[in-house]
């Protein structure tokens, strides 16, 4: 009944799929170049910098490529994406700690996956739902990302490093495929 009532969404709700590609994972991170894609939220760059140092110290990664997105809401610029895909073996993205940037970080992670580079996205736990909603919007329902407790912005340097230490195993798992991921999302 009511089939003649016009759908005010334009049909997007019915068109979602789960077919977005996910990059193949390396077994280990030794010798790999790590991209750090930060947004402009307070402590995002410091957080990713700490992650880069920990990856080098504990997993023998080879170097880092740092880039910062000027816009917290827009997708990573195509030129930045292409450059990082060229230079990096894996990418860490964050920190999603606001209404639009959490979703944007997940969209960027999915864009790197589609370009063949494994990505690990960090969001604060307050924005898990919107990050998941963006994953659905980008045809990647169930896309996995790393959570850190909210808030991130007021942390001092030691607090940021503690967060990086805490989330590191999860990031390594996401980048190497060691964490459980939904079967349907593992396709090439």
């Amino acid at each position: 009944m009511f089939e003649s009532m016009i759908d005010p969404t334009g049909g997007w709700a019915a068109s979602a799929t789960d077919g977005a590609p996910r990059a193949a994972r390396p077994d280990r991170l030794d010798g790999l170049t790590v991209g750090l894609l930060a947004n402009t939220k307070r402590n995002a760059e410091a957080f990713l910098e700490a992650v880069g140092e920990l990856l080098a110290g504990e997993h023998a990664t080879a170097g880092v490529v740092r880039r910062t997105k000027a816009s917290i809401v827009d997708p990573v610029p195509a030129a930045t994406l292409a450059e990082m895909v060229e230079l990096c073996d894996v990418v860490v993205i964050g920190v999603g700690d606001c209404g639009s940037c959490s979703a944007s970080a997940v969209a960027d992670g999915i864009a790197f996956e589609a370009a063949g580079v494994p990505a690990a996205v960090i969001c604060s736990d307050a924005f898990r739902v919107t990050a998941e909603a963006m994953a659905g919007l980008r045809d990647s329902p169930g896309y996995e990302f790393a959570l850190t407790p909210h808030p991130v912005a007021p942390l001092d340097a030691d607090g940021v490093r503690e967060r990086a230490v805490a989330v590191l195993p999860r990031l390594v798992g996401l980048l190497t495929g060691a964490s459980a991921v939904p079967e349907r999302a593992v396709a090439g």
């Binding site: 816009s71 917290i72 809401v73 606001c98 209404g99 639009s100 940037c101 979703a103 944007s104 919107t130």
Partner: peptide, 8 residues
């Protein structure tokens, strides 16, 4: 277009 509709 800068994220206002999603904003906290």
């Amino acid at each position: 277009t800068g994220g206002a509709w999603q904003s906290t």
